[in-house]
Write a protein that binds this DNA or RNA. Sequence first.
DNA 1: GGGTGTGAAGCCGTTCACAGCA
DNA 2: TGCTGTGAACGGCTTCACACCC
Lengths: 218, 218
Amino acid sequence: MANIGNAIPEKTIERLSEYRRTLLSCHKQGITHIFSHVLAGIHGITAVQVRRDLMLIGFSSDTKKGYDVKVLIDFISNILDSPQPMNVAVLGMGHLGQAITKYFNGKGLKLRITAAFDVDPAKVGQTIDGIPCYHMDRFEEIAEDLDISLVIVSSPTKVAPSLVLPIINAGIRGVLNFTSTPLNFPQGIVVENYDITTLLEKVAYFVKESEENERGSE
Amino acid sequence: MANIGNAIPEKTIERLSEYRRTLLSCHKQGITHIFSHVLAGIHGITAVQVRRDLMLIGFSSDTKKGYDVKVLIDFISNILDSPQPMNVAVLGMGHLGQAITKYFNGKGLKLRITAAFDVDPAKVGQTIDGIPCYHMDRFEEIAEDLDISLVIVSSPTKVAPSLVLPIINAGIRGVLNFTSTPLNFPQGIVVENYDITTLLEKVAYFVKESEENERGSE
DNA sequence: GGGTGTGAAGCCGTTCACAGCA
DNA sequence: TGCTGTGAACGGCTTCACACCC
């Protein structure tokens, strides 16, 4: 039995997260209402897309002044956030791990980075950006103690495969993998692989494409 | 007039980049042939998907021993890579910028990070991981000199909007943006926005979803 | 007029089902 | 038998077109 009228498409979820960040920034600037086409413009999409997304989550505005920023923030948050905060661990506290940690610090999100893991003796035992760094050997034990449910894999690509088993054993539910190895987990664990190289190669390909088209049509 | 039988879907391009990385690793290990279902397994997708992707780029194998790894690498490279290497600049040499630079260093790709830009006096004028770091004020000038065509935006989110104009003026063709502000560019400039927060929030949402479904079906 | 909400159409990407081949 | 290649069906997401409402 499904909980509510759920089944919100993945793309919509991504955009909701983006809308919310924009809305929070509007809210901070004192903007109280926003039109769909303005929100769309900021994100480089169409107004229909915005309205459709809001329709899918059952949001509707009663006014003609656009959407109430504060109300919409709360509505989206109600969709995206868990009732209780989720704890996140960063696996690999190199530059990427530290960059991610800094991103999240003080953002006041429902997702909290509460632990980091590494094997470098210079980092283990330290507190980096306010996050304690433990040795990877102790991952399963500490993940359980701290009730970690999500991990970000920012280790060197070479060691990433060796993290799969500990992650499974620790009962982790979601993985965000930034290494160049696709990681496979059994059903029930949510995984997103984002290889930076692939992202850049994609951009490069479409640049190449558009240049070829320009040349072709002149 | 279109160049070749192009129009390869975006998703396929992403996967081709991923396949290639896997294939390169296979090649290094001395594996000469690979079945579609093996390649699929590594990437957590179906064999049909792999075959369909290869069909779309016009690749076909003549043997029954699976695909020839070396030949396929060259074929994919011919699709993805530009004839001449593309130069990439990193805007923002904080942790994220340095992480990205390290990723690319010595990967021997057709994409080369050839310059970094920052405003921190401690970084400007230095060489970091073999990449010279210039002051952002000199971006337009140096981008032209070094024939930069792609940029990676890894600056703090707050300054990201101020980079848009210099990027346009410098004639940059592709942008990979890792900040939390969506950046909009005029038609003709390829942009990919990848906000790490959004990626994590998406994983968190689907974890929440799957937990609710489990609870619902017990 | 200028905004929102939405059924219906259209497009894109994935999967099915099966033919063909060694 | 076990693999590859592919037309056709399917499903998810986006866009069109238009009704409705200050």
